[in-house]
Every structure is written in structure tokens, then in C-alpha cells.
């Protein structure tokens, strides 16, 4: 076993590089697995909820009704996307390890990073697909409801002999602003970004711990603290508010959690604000930074993990 033969043999075997095809294979297997686990059943639940929120409560005035429809459905979208991201990520990795599926996968020429990225992309594709479907459902209901409500409101005005051109125009404007606009899709995009960040956190945690429950519990803690991170951060940046220990604790908490409140544009969208491009860009790049760094950390841990 001379050095020369060893190195010549080593030279014959080409280095295995990152391969998008392999990541795609991993991602598709993850999506198939999750779909066949009937995880998309929540879409049905969502439809029921959206129809319920859209057509129940006819007691409130039309604009409140539209805003309620949006609040309820977007809130549900938010909960669904985060829960699915966290739970499926926390389930999949330890399950692969427990079932020894990981052995067969990683004993193929598959870099561990490709595996991780494939899993992440798979979960994100599922969330993204679900959000697209739900966005379409919501848009449809909103659009139907919007024209219905407008006709209703105009009829009502006519009955009360108040259907002046001004009043009708005002009603049209109100209903349109509360109805279907592009902003709605940006809100859904923001929800996707938030779910992406939370899912990456779940992946990071599940690469450290092998217990599903641990991952889920800690990820939800991080999610909750992450929503309050802006407050903690401001507390840290406001001098003279507290002693050294308080500030140190605030710094630590703010440092280990991502700021999830930054993706909370849903409420503003429901209130009818217009989403500027700069906001979309800001949120998207911030999410990209979180995901990149967290994936890097995940890889650091997972690359050397004993299986």
C-alpha cells in the first residue's frame, strides 16, 4: 500500500460537489412524504374557515366584514404555515435518524449539506404551495364577497333613498380598498417569509437535538420571543432603562432570536395600507440573511454529527 497507489486511486474518484439535482431529489421526496402523510388536510380546514369567515357574521357593516374575513384567514394562514413548518421539520429529521433512513441516504455520495438543504426546500415548497392555494381561495372568496357586498350596500342605500352619486362612490371606494388588492399577496409573501425563518430555526434545533418534542417546544419559544424581539432590542438600545444585568440579558435574548415582528405587515394590509416595494425588499433580504446564517450554523453542527 504505497503512497503513490493511494493517491492515484484517490485522484480517480472525482470530488463530490453540491448538486442542485440531488437537492431537488431530496426536496421532492420530502414533499411526497409530507403530502402522503396527509398534512395538506389543513387546506380543507382552511377553506371551511375562509367560507365561514366570509359569509357568517352578516350583522356587521360590509367593510368590517371584509376586514374580518381578511384578518381571520390571514391569521389562520400564519398559524398554519408556522405550525406546519415547525412540526414537519421537527418530525422529519429525527424520524430519518430513528428509522435509519439517514444511513442509506448518507452512505450514498450525498454531502450532508445537500441533505439538509433538500429537507428545508421540501418543507418550504410544501408551505409555499399551500400558501399559494390558500391565497387563491382567499382571493376568490374576497372577490365574490366584495361584489356581493357592494351590491347589497347600494341596494340598502337606495332603499333609504341615500343613493347619491357621492355616497355610492364612497361605498365603492371603501369596499374596493378593503377588497382584493395586490397588497393581499404581499401579506401572504410576508407570511411565507416568516414561516421560512421559523422553519430554518426548527431545522437548526433539530440538528442539535434528536428529540422531536424538544425541537417543537424550543422552536415555539423562539417564535414567541422572536415576535417580541423588537421590544427587547429597543429596551437594550435605550440607555438608562436598567442595570447592567438587565441589559446583558436583553442583549442575549435579542441576539439568539430573529426579529419575527418585522414580517407582521398583515395587520397593516388588512387596514388597507399600500405595501411599498422597499418594504418587500427589506423583508425579503432580511429573511434571506437569517436563512443563510442559520443554515450555515445548522451545517456546522450537522456536518460532524454522529449518526
Amino acid at each position: 500500500m504505497s503512497d503513490a497507489t493511494t493517491s492515484s486511486a484517490a485522484a480517480k474518484t472525482p470530488k463530490v460537489r453540491f448538486s442542485p439535482q440531488r437537492v431537488w431529489t431530496m426536496a421532492m421526496a420530502t414533499v411526497t412524504q409530507l403530502i402522503r402523510m396527509k398534512i395538506l388536510a389543513f387546506l380543507v380546514l382552511f377553506c371551511l374557515l375562509a367560507v365561514g369567515a366570509g359569509f357568517a357574521f352578516s350583522v356587521i357593516n360590509p367593510e368590517q366584514q371584509l376586514s374580518l374575513l381578511k384578518s381571520v384567514t390571514l391569521g389562520a394562514l400564519q398559524i398554519f404555515s408556522i405550525v406546519i413548518g415547525v412540526v414537519s421539520t421537527a418530525l422529519l429529521l429525527p424520524k430519518d435518524l430513528e428509522d435509519r433512513t439517514l444511513y442509506t441516504i448518507l452512505s450514498k455520495p450525498v454531502p450532508r449539506f445537500d441533505y439538509l438543504l433538500g429537507k428545508l426546500i421540501g418543507v418550504l415548497m410544501l408551505i409555499g404551495g399551500g400558501l399559494i392555494v390558500m391565497d387563491a381561495i382567499l382571493s376568490l372568496i374576497l372577490w365574490m364577497r366584495q361584489s356581493l357586498l357592494f351590491d347589497e350596500a347600494v341596494n340598502h342605500l337606495r332603499m333609504e333613498k341615500m343613493d347619491s352619486a357621492e355616497a355610492v362612490t364612497q361605498m365603492r371606494e371603501i369596499v374596493a380598498r378593503q377588497g382584493l388588492t395586490w397588497n393581499l399577496h404581499w401579506a401572504v409573501w410576508a407570511i411565507f417569509l416568516k414561516a421560512t425563518v421559523v422553519t430554518t430555526v426548527a431545522l437548526l434545533l433539530s440538528s442539535i437535538a434528536s428529540s422531536t418534542l424538544f425541537t417543537i417546544v424550543i422552536t415555539f419559544c423562539v417564535t414567541i420571543i422572536g415576535h417580541g424581539e423588537a421590544l427587547i432590542r429597543e429596551f437594550f438600545f435605550t440607555p438608562n432603562l436598567s442595570g447592567m444585568t438587565g441589559r446583558a440579558a436583553a442583549l442575549l435574548l435579542a441576539a439568539i432570536c430573529p426579529d419575527l415582528a418585522q414580517f407582521d405587515i398583515v395587520d397593516s394590509v388588512v387596514n388597507g395600507e399600500i405595501v411599498p416595494w422597499s418594504a418587500v425588499l427589506n423583508m425579503t433580504s432580511l429573511a434571506a440573511i437569517y436563512v443563510t446564517v442559520y443554515m450555515f450554523i445548522t451545517h456546522l453542527v450537522f456536518a460532524e454529527k454522529e449518526l
Partner: peptide, 30 residues
Amino acid sequence: TSIFGVPSTEVASRSDVGFLPENPYFYKHL
């Protein structure tokens, strides 16, 4: 350890290996 001269720490060492673990299990939905 090495396989065909390539150290096991490199991913490339696994290009030419087929592994059957004890009690193998696969994605049960496939």
C-alpha cells in the same frame, strides 16, 4: 479508514459503495 484509497471523511469515498444497514428502513410512503 478509507475506501479505495479515499478517506471516509470525504463524500467522494462513498461514490462506489453500496451499504445495507442492519434492519434497514425506508420512507414508508414511497
